[in-house]
Computed example of a mutant assay.
Amino acid sequence: MFQRNQVMEGMTVRSIDGEKLGRVFSLGDDAFHIEKGLFFPKDYLVRYADISDIRDGEIILMHGRESLLRLSGEDKYGTTAGLGTGAATTGLRADASASTAGTWEGRSTDEVAIPVHKEELDVTKREVQAGEVRIHKDVVEEVKTVSVPVRRERVSVERRDINPDRPAMNASLQEETVVVPLRAEEVDVHKRAVLDEEVVIRKDAIEEERRVAESVRHEEVDIRTSGEDETRSLNLGPDDPTPRRS
C-alpha cells in the first residue's frame, strides 16, 4: 500500500487503462485531491489505498476510465463519489469563495482538515572560481664581470761574454733560425643554469559567514461566518504560544 510520503503535489494521475485524469494539487492524511478538468467536473478525492502503482513520477489508479466516470457523478449536495469507497465523500473546491452549503451533511465527523502551506528556504553550496593568481617570470640579461688570473710566457734576451779560447763544437757556419715557442693561457667562458631560489605559492581555506535573503510565501487562513461582519484570523505570530485553533 502506498503512503502519503510517496505522493507529491503536481504528479500526473492516470487510470488503470492509461487515461490521464489530471494532477495532484493537495494532500491529506488518508487521501489526495485531483484538480478538476475535462475528465472531472470538480476536484476529485482519491484514497492512497486506490493507487495501483507509481511509475516514472506518475500515479496509476486501480480503476479504469468507465469506472471513474461512473464514480465521479455529483449528488444534490455537491459531493463527489470517492474511488473504491462505495459512499459519497465531500469534494473540496480550490475556489475558497465558493459556497460550502451541504458539505457537512452525511459526514460522521465534526472537523475537516484544510492544508495550509508555506515555503522554506533550502540553502546549498557549490564551488566556483573566485579569482586566480598569476606568477610570471621574465628573463633579464645583465653583464657579469669575473676576474680570472691567467699566465703567459715572455722572452728575454741576454748576451754573455765567454772565453775566446773555448773551442766551437759542431760549428756549421751557416745561416740558421731558431724558433722558441711562447705559451699563454686563454679564458673560455661557458654558461650553465643553476637553481637560485624558490617561490612558494600556498593556498589556505578560510571560512566566512555570508547572509542570503530570499522572499518566501505562505498561506494565511481567515474565517468568516455567515451573518457576521467580523473576520476571524488563524494566522498567529511565530512567537505566539496560543495553539492555532479557531
Rank of each mutant, 00 (worst) to 15 (best):
R224F: 09
Q129H: 01
E35N: 15
E197A: 13
V194W: 05
V139W: 02
M8S: 14
F2P: 00
D204I: 09
S97W: 05
L173I: 08
P115T: 01
A49N: 12
K137M: 10
K36L: 09
A101T: 04
T80W: 10
A213F: 12
A96R: 05
E111W: 08
E208N: 04
A87T: 06
I16N: 05
A49D: 13
I201D: 03
P164I: 02
V148M: 01
G18E: 14
S108L: 02
I201V: 14
S99F: 04
A49R: 15
E185P: 01
T12Y: 07
D30Y: 11
R47N: 12
D50T: 12
V200I: 14
T109G: 04
R160T: 10
V150D: 00
R244P: 09
N170F: 00
R152E: 02
S67H: 09
D239Y: 01
Q3Y: 11
S156Y: 00
D165Q: 00
R154C: 01
Y48Q: 06
K36C: 05
P241W: 03
E228H: 07
L27G: 08
K125C: 03
V140Y: 00
E119F: 03
A81W: 11
I54Q: 13
D122K: 06
T100I: 11
G22I: 10
L195T: 03
D56Y: 14
S15N: 02
R107N: 08
V116I: 07
K203T: 07
L182N: 04
R107F: 02
H33D: 15
A205Y: 11
T103H: 09
I16L: 05
G28S: 15
V140H: 01
R232G: 03
I162A: 02
R14Y: 04
D95A: 11
E127C: 02
L45G: 10
Q174C: 07
V146D: 03
N235P: 05
V13H: 06
G84H: 07
G28R: 15
L27W: 10
M62P: 03
F40W: 14
D95G: 06
I201L: 13
G22L: 13
T225N: 14
V143K: 05
L69C: 11
